[in-house]
């Protein structure tokens, strides 16, 4: 009914709208950081200097952010192709358990790391098979695996113990913490730099690679993509595998940071990932979205959640994240020209 006038209006303001769509995320990041730095954090013991822009605080936030930073890019590509993975939290929990089990039983760092990544690829491939081969709706397929992977992770941990950790004759090796905690460059740990590297690779893939173009084509118009000879099934399958691998990297980062293999350590990760990707302006109808903007979105959410802990009690967190999710979805709808799904 009002679609004609709406189109006209959009074309007039499209220059401004485009600018807003491309760069608003950076303004949000600056605004969040500025607000948090202005808040008086003196009375809280978490940060030594009572200042958000304190060096230690920034390092700390970036260290804790490694898991979400590493998944954000791959998750963006998956959503660009019009699909979703609700199982990443469980994948993360299960791979964290696997990694900790391998390490505590004496396997050295490199093989344990590679095997866990392989496990993540297998878990992602299971999602891919359910969605692509068996044609189960992505939401349901990944809800099934959410439950399945979580169940397996819980079973791997002995009854009566909440997580894989030192004790009962087994001891975590000394190197276990290094990946997630030890500063290797600019005092930031390897986990963070791996996240940066993964994001850089995915940015190149999105801008130059076939996979990025195929993902956008699949999400924009699946039928047209198929007709023009793109193997959409293989594209989606591959994206699920990549998401699985990055979720495994997130699991390793979290497990190394906390020095235990907690089967529930990834709980709620799928929500954070959706939130971050929507905040980055990825259209939920698929077809458009940027890896880099999701990375910035992840930085915003982590700054907000960690910063918030210093201002309000922890029990405000669920409410704030939920409200942020709704706000991001609504803003995304207003900014995106394609927000017309029903």
């Amino acid at each position: 009914m009002s679609s004609q006038s709406k189109t006209a209006e959009l074309s007039v303001t499209s220059g401004a709208a485009n600018f807003l769509r491309n760069y608003y995320i950076y303004f949000v990041l600056v605004a969040v950081v500025a607000l948090l730095s202005l808040a008086n954090l003196d009375q809280f013991a978490l940060f030594e200097r009572g200042n958000f822009l304190n060096k230690r605080n920034i390092i700390n936030i970036l260290r804790v952010s490694a898991p979400i930073l590493v998944v954000a890019g791959a998750f963006t590509l998956l959503m660009v192709s019009g699909y979703i993975d609700l199982s990443i939290g469980s994948t993360m929990g299960l791979t964290a358990v696997i990694y900790a089990m391998l390490a505590i039983n004496g396997m050295p760092f490199v093989p344990a790391f590679l095997l866990t990544m392989l496990a993540g690829a297998v878990l992602g491939a299971i999602n891919g098979i359910l969605v692509v081969r068996l044609n189960i709706t992505p939401v349901i397929a990944t809800l099934i695996t959410l439950s399945l992977f979580k169940g397996i992770a819980l079973l791997l941990v002995q009854d009566g113990v909440s997580a894989i950790k030192s004790g009962g004759g087994l001891k975590m090796p000394a190197w276990f913490n290094d990946y997630g905690r030890d500063g290797v460059f600019l005092k930031l740990p390897a986990a963070f730099w791996v996240a940066v590297a993964v994001t850089l690779v995915l940015i190149v893939v999105q801008n130059r690679g076939k996979l990025g173009k195929y993902a956008a084509a699949t999400g924009g118009n699946p039928t047209a993509a198929k007709l023009s000879g793109i193997n959409t099934g293989r594209t989606v399958f591959l994206l699920y595998v990549i998401v699985g691998v990055t979720a495994a990297l997130a699991g390793i980062a979290r497990s190394s940071f906390m020095s235990l293999g907690d089967p529930l350590s990834g709980d709620g990760m799928e929500l954070t990932a959706i939130l971050v990707v929507l905040l980055g302006g990825t259209a939920f109808s698929g077809g458009e979205g940027r890896v880099l903007r999701s990375f910035v979105g992840a930085l915003i959410i982590m700054a907000l959640t960690v910063g918030m802990l210093t201002i309000v009690p922890a029990y405000y967190q669920t409410l704030v994240i939920g409200a942020a999710l709704l706000t991001a979805a609504a803003t995304n709808h207003l900014v995106s020209q394609k927000g017309k799904v029903s």
């Binding site: 939920g322 017309k340 799904v341």
Partner: peptide, 23 residues
């Protein structure tokens, strides 16, 4: 009104509702 996919909306309102209960 906004045409946002129901899965995302209701995940958000679930957290808001539980969040208010937690507060």
């Amino acid at each position: 009104r906004f045409g946002i996919p129901s899965i995302i909306v209701t995940l958000g309102t679930m957290m808001v509702a539980r969040g208010i209960a937690q507060v």
